[in-house]
Each structure stands twice: as structure tokens, then as C-alpha cells.
Computed example of a mutant assay.
Amino acid sequence: MLWPAILSFVYPPPASVLMTVVAVISTAGVANAGLSEIRGSHLKYSKFWNVSSPCKMEMARVSSWTGMLVLYVPAFLVGAASFWAFPSGDGGLRFLLLRSALTLHFLKRVLEVLLIHKFSGFMAVDSMCSISLSYSVFTATSIYTQHISRGLPDPIIDLTYPGLALFAIGMAGNFYHHLILSRLRSQRSEKEYTIPRGGLFDYVTCPHYLFEIIDFMGISLISQTVYSFAFTIATTIYLMGRSYATRRWYLAKFDDFPRDVKALFPFVY
């Protein structure tokens, strides 16, 4: 009874061994990274470069600005290239909206790196490569899985437009809270951290992560494939771990950090 209920929301998984293997490996890797964050083994960028890297001077590294660009540019190029690889009329409205959402998601992140964020310090090359590969594989696999789902039975419940609404909310909320962080850094020394205030920062440590989850959930509803939902769940686990570690970092660094401010979900977690 469970599988027919699931199929009312998603396309049947396409009969592709390669896509199944890629989906399992990528989603498991992202979810495991989140559990590692909780255990104290962090991807080495931002404030956690110092926390998790006792031998950081011996590690291959790039500036944070360069690292962040490398995180997002390849995935953006994959999304943009899909409009050349698959003509605009190929696959219908859902396919067009999915490719557009993925491309816009990573274009926004690239533009934020270039125009909004303030950076200091470095990023470890191994972390940069693993995150960049994860985003690129997610983008390519999502698009290709949607492409080969043509001809399969459509989900009984069409979630395309609720997905678009969530995607827009996630993009706007994520940008707004990134803007707050950027303005906060511009008022202080580039290497000095302070407690963020304003927006949902008064309730959770990482509201930008919360809206990123909403963004990815919107993409999943647009796509309605098993892979997109699985990756969104894995991303949620990762961002839960990262936000938990971030809250723990603030509690250790600032004696006046509000104890009632949660990590990711207001009043809950």
C-alpha cells in the first residue's frame, strides 16, 4: 500500500542502473556529511576551517572567494548547458521549469559570491572539490532523470506550481538572510565574527539554511522524481548537522549567545 501512495506523488524510478547508483552514492554522501558535522568532523570552510584543521597550514587551500566560486560555477554551467543539450520544446513545461530553477539557484549563488558576500580566510581544496562535485552531480542527475522519465506515468497529484511557490520563497528568504550576514560583516573587521541579528536570526542560528531547504524542496516538487526528493532529504540532514555545529560554535565563542535560539527550525531544533 505504501508504494502506490508514493507513486501518487512521484514518477516511477527510471530503469537505469547508472542513475540508481549515482543517486544512492550522492545522497548517501551528502547525508553522511551532515552526520559528520554533528560528530565534529567538519567540511573545512568558513569558521570551521580553524575548528577542524589542526594541520591546516599543510593542506592544499584556496581563498574563500575562489573556493565559493568553484562550488557553484560548475553546477550553474551544467544547468545552463542543459538548454543547449535539450531544446526548449523537449520534455514539456515541467522539464523547462526544473532546468530553469536549477540554473537560477546556482546563478544566484554565483552572483552572491561576486556581489554580496564578504570573505576572509581560506577553504581546503578537498572540501571545495567534494561540495562542487556534489552540486554538479545533483544538477546533472536531476535533469537527466527528468529527461528519461518522459513516457512514464505522470504522478496523480501535480505539485509543479506549489513547487514553484516554495522555490521562490526559498530563494528570497535565503538571499535576504545572506544580505543580513553581509551587512554584518561590513560593519566589523572582515575576520571578526559577531552574533547575527534580524530576520529569523532572532529565532534560529542558520535561517539561510532553512530557506535553502525550502528552495530544494521546491525543486523536488517541480521535479517529482524519487532522486530529487532523496537528495533534498540528504541535503536537509547535512544542513541540520551544519546548523547544529554552527550553534555549538556560537555557544562556545559568545557567552551572551541566546540559549533559546535554535539551530535551524524555530522553537523546535
Rank of each mutant, 00 (worst) to 15 (best):
residue 120 S to L: 05
residue 168 A to M: 15
residue 141 T to E: 11
residue 187 Q to R: 15
residue 133 L to Q: 10
residue 158 D to T: 05
residue 211 F to E: 05
residue 177 H to A: 01
residue 152 L to K: 05
residue 183 R to L: 06
residue 188 R to M: 07
residue 132 S to W: 01
residue 115 L to S: 15
residue 156 I to Q: 13
residue 174 N to P: 08
residue 168 A to I: 06
residue 194 T to L: 06
residue 132 S to P: 11
residue 202 D to C: 04
residue 174 N to A: 04
residue 219 I to C: 03
residue 114 L to F: 10
residue 133 L to M: 14
residue 127 S to N: 08
residue 170 G to D: 05
residue 176 Y to L: 10
residue 157 I to T: 09
residue 126 D to W: 15
residue 139 T to Q: 07
residue 117 H to S: 09
residue 197 R to I: 00
residue 143 I to T: 08
residue 185 R to C: 04
residue 137 V to Q: 11
residue 192 E to A: 03
residue 194 T to W: 01
residue 205 T to Y: 01
residue 129 C to G: 13
residue 171 M to V: 14
residue 132 S to L: 04
residue 127 S to I: 05
residue 214 I to Q: 02
residue 189 S to G: 12
residue 156 I to F: 13
residue 123 M to S: 08
residue 158 D to K: 08
residue 153 P to W: 12
residue 169 I to Y: 04
residue 179 L to I: 12
residue 123 M to H: 06
residue 203 Y to L: 03
residue 118 K to V: 15
residue 113 V to I: 08
residue 192 E to S: 03
residue 203 Y to Q: 06
residue 201 F to E: 01
residue 193 Y to I: 05
residue 154 D to T: 14
residue 172 A to H: 12
residue 172 A to L: 08
residue 170 G to E: 08
residue 160 T to K: 12
residue 190 E to V: 11
residue 160 T to A: 07
residue 203 Y to D: 06
residue 181 L to Y: 01
residue 186 S to R: 09
residue 133 L to K: 14
residue 189 S to M: 07
residue 216 F to K: 02
residue 153 P to C: 07
residue 148 I to A: 11
residue 126 D to C: 07
residue 140 A to S: 11
residue 137 V to D: 07
residue 130 S to D: 12
residue 198 G to S: 00
residue 139 T to H: 05
residue 135 Y to C: 01
residue 191 K to N: 15
residue 169 I to R: 05
residue 124 A to K: 08
residue 213 I to C: 01
residue 218 G to S: 02
residue 139 T to A: 14
residue 142 S to I: 11
residue 206 C to K: 01
residue 164 L to N: 07
residue 155 P to R: 06
residue 181 L to H: 02
residue 198 G to R: 00
residue 176 Y to P: 05
residue 147 H to Y: 14
residue 123 M to G: 10
